[in-house]
């Protein structure tokens, strides 16, 4: 019951609708479209997730440098503000697009679609083999959003401590590869890589775990081999009709 302008009580007409629609559905359908687009271009898309400062950009710099003669890499950088990361990637000679989310704590599939359009223009005629999507530094929110990637990689750096998989399981459940970064700092921190790995595998038994230092190059070979294997697998998949 409600009162009208003359304070008379009137009965409102109420309609109850059963909707049963996912609030992630808009993102998920755009993510599926992104994936189809990447597939059509023969690109391996990788979503990199970690806290701020885990070394995502440093890993990309070292990766681009190491694979420059073999694979063409493009990068979509997600940050709340500044184009600093994109400048670091551009300095390595790779096409890059900086998405500044203006406060949003994660990238979504629509932003990535827009970023990929810009990146395609920047990359020109040369096709890309790998698209890295460096998500906003955050181990929580990005885990909920499919961007259309083929592989999701989560990083934890040695100074962050080995308890991150236990504390932030969603990022590990949804990823295929766990990279323990900045291993050159192991002598100075109480970080047992096998404990962090075991903790991650409790949540995701199929997960692969690599330990590396982008700074010294230790352990980079495993990661580079993994990337080349994934690119080859994607190409093979494409050739099978």
């Amino acid at each position: 019951m409600m009162e009208d302008a003359n304070h008379r009580r009137t009965r409102k007409s109420v309609t109850v609708l059963t909707v049963e629609a996912s609030l992630f559905s808009a993102n998920d359908s755009q993510a599926a479209a992104n994936r189809a687009r990447f597939d059509a271009c023969g690109i391996l898309a990788i979503n990199l997730i970690s806290s701020p400062g885990s070394g995502k950009t440093a890993l990309l710099e070292a990766t681009i440098k190491a694979l420059a003669d073999i694979l063409r890499i493009g990068v979509i950088e997600g940050d709340i503000e500044t184009a600093r990361d994109a400048e670091r990637i551009r300095a390595q000679g790779a096409p890059v697009v900086q998405l500044t989310t203006g406060g949003a704590c994660h990238l979504d599939a629509v932003m990535v679609a827009r970023g990929f359009e810009q990146l395609s223009a920047e990359a020109g005629d040369q096709p890309l083999d790998i698209l890295f999507i460096e998500n906003v530094g955050n181990l929580v929110c990005p885990a909920s959003f499919d961007l259309g990637e083929h592989r999701r990689v989560v990083l934890v750096s040695v100074p962050e401590g080995p308890d991150k998989p236990a504390k932030y399981p969603a990022a590990f459940v949804g990823s295929q590869l766990f990279i323990i970064s900045k291993t050159d700092l192991l002598p100075y921190f109480d970080f047992a890589p096998h404990e962090a790995a075991a903790s991650a595998k409790c949540h995701n038994p199929a997960m692969e775990v690599f330990e590396l230092s982008a700074k010294t190059g230790d352990g980079m070979a495993m990661w580079l081999t993994w990337l080349r294997r994934e690119v080859a697998a994607r190409r093979a998949e494409r050739e099978i009709p």
């Binding site: 309609t15 109850v16 609708l17 049963e20 996912s22």
Partner: peptide, 13 residues
């Protein structure tokens, strides 16, 4: 893992 809009109640005057 989903977030689902189940039901809404709409009113007319």
């Amino acid at each position: 893992r989903d977030l689902i809009l189940q039901q809404v109640e709409l009113e007319e005057e």
